[in-house]
Computed example of a mutant assay.
Amino acid sequence: MAHGTQMRRHLCGIQTAWTDAGEAEGAVAAVAEIIDRAALGHLIVFFSPAYDAQTLTAALTARFPGVALTGCSTSGGISPAGSIDRGLVVIAFPRQGFRIVSGLLTDIARLDVEGAASTVRGLRRLLDQGRPDAGSSHRFALSLIDALSNAEETVVSAVAWALDGIPLIGGSAADDLAFRSTVLIHEGALWRDAAVILLVETDFPIRIFKSDNFEPTSRKFVVTAACEEARRVTELNAEPAAREYAMAVGLDPENLTPMSFAAYPLAVKIGGEYYCRSISRVEPDGAMTFFCAIGEGVVMTLAQPRDIVEATRTELENLDAALGGLDLVIGFDCVFRRLDAESRQVRHRIADLYKRYGVVGFETYGEQYRSMHLNQTFTGIAIGRAEVPEDRGVKTTR
Rank of each mutant, 00 (worst) to 15 (best):
residue 1 M to F: 13
residue 2 A to L: 15
residue 2 A to I: 11
residue 3 H to L: 15
residue 3 H to T: 15
residue 4 G to M: 07
residue 10 H to A: 14
residue 10 H to K: 14
residue 18 W to C: 08
residue 26 G to P: 12
residue 30 A to Q: 11
residue 40 L to D: 05
residue 43 L to N: 03
residue 44 I to R: 14
residue 45 V to H: 04
residue 49 P to F: 05
residue 55 T to H: 12
residue 59 A to C: 00
residue 72 C to F: 03
residue 76 G to S: 03
residue 79 S to R: 04
residue 83 S to M: 15
residue 84 I to C: 09
residue 92 A to W: 03
residue 96 Q to V: 15
residue 98 F to E: 02
residue 105 L to P: 09
residue 113 V to Q: 14
residue 126 L to W: 10
residue 135 G to N: 07
residue 136 S to P: 00
residue 139 R to T: 12
residue 141 A to I: 01
residue 151 A to E: 05
residue 152 E to F: 03
residue 156 V to F: 00
residue 159 V to N: 04
residue 161 W to C: 13
residue 164 D to F: 10
residue 169 I to Q: 02
residue 170 G to I: 01
residue 174 A to L: 02
residue 175 D to L: 03
residue 177 L to E: 09
residue 179 F to E: 09
residue 182 T to P: 05
residue 183 V to T: 14
residue 189 A to C: 10
residue 189 A to R: 09
residue 192 R to D: 07
residue 200 V to R: 01
residue 209 F to H: 01
residue 210 K to T: 00
residue 213 N to M: 01
residue 213 N to I: 00
residue 218 S to W: 14
residue 224 T to L: 08
residue 224 T to R: 10
residue 227 C to G: 12
residue 232 R to H: 11
residue 240 P to G: 09
residue 241 A to M: 01
residue 242 A to K: 10
residue 246 A to S: 06
residue 252 D to Q: 10
residue 266 L to H: 08
residue 273 E to G: 08
residue 275 Y to P: 04
residue 278 S to D: 08
residue 287 A to S: 15
residue 291 F to E: 01
residue 293 A to Y: 11
residue 296 E to L: 08
residue 299 V to K: 02
residue 303 A to M: 00
residue 310 E to L: 07
residue 312 T to P: 02
residue 319 L to I: 04
residue 321 A to G: 01
residue 325 G to H: 01
residue 328 L to D: 06
residue 340 D to N: 03
residue 342 E to A: 06
residue 342 E to S: 06
residue 343 S to T: 07
residue 355 K to M: 13
residue 355 K to E: 14
residue 361 G to V: 00
residue 362 F to E: 01
residue 375 N to V: 06
residue 391 D to I: 11
residue 394 V to W: 12
